[in-house]
Amino acid sequence: MNTKVDFSLVTLETSPAKAPLTRAKLKGWVNVVFWGLRLYIFLMLVLVGYAFVHGTL
């Protein structure tokens, strides 16, 4: 290990952003967008399943 390294750099540059990452609260339009995303994924999975069963994939 090189003892000449300036450790202050590590703390100065990275510590403010390394605060614990907390779960985002989904509300308002963000919640609507997430439900839209779930719907999109569900529809695409149904289509993929249909195509697979019917031999087009």
């Binding site: 290990m1 090189n2 390294v5 300036d6 450790f7 750099l9 590590v10 540059e13 990275t14």
Partner: peptide, 11 residues
């Protein structure tokens, strides 16, 4: 150890 190597590059 990882931070030390990165700190060298940042230095």
């Amino acid at each position: 150890e990882d931070a030390v190597i990165r700190a060298k590059d940042q230095e």
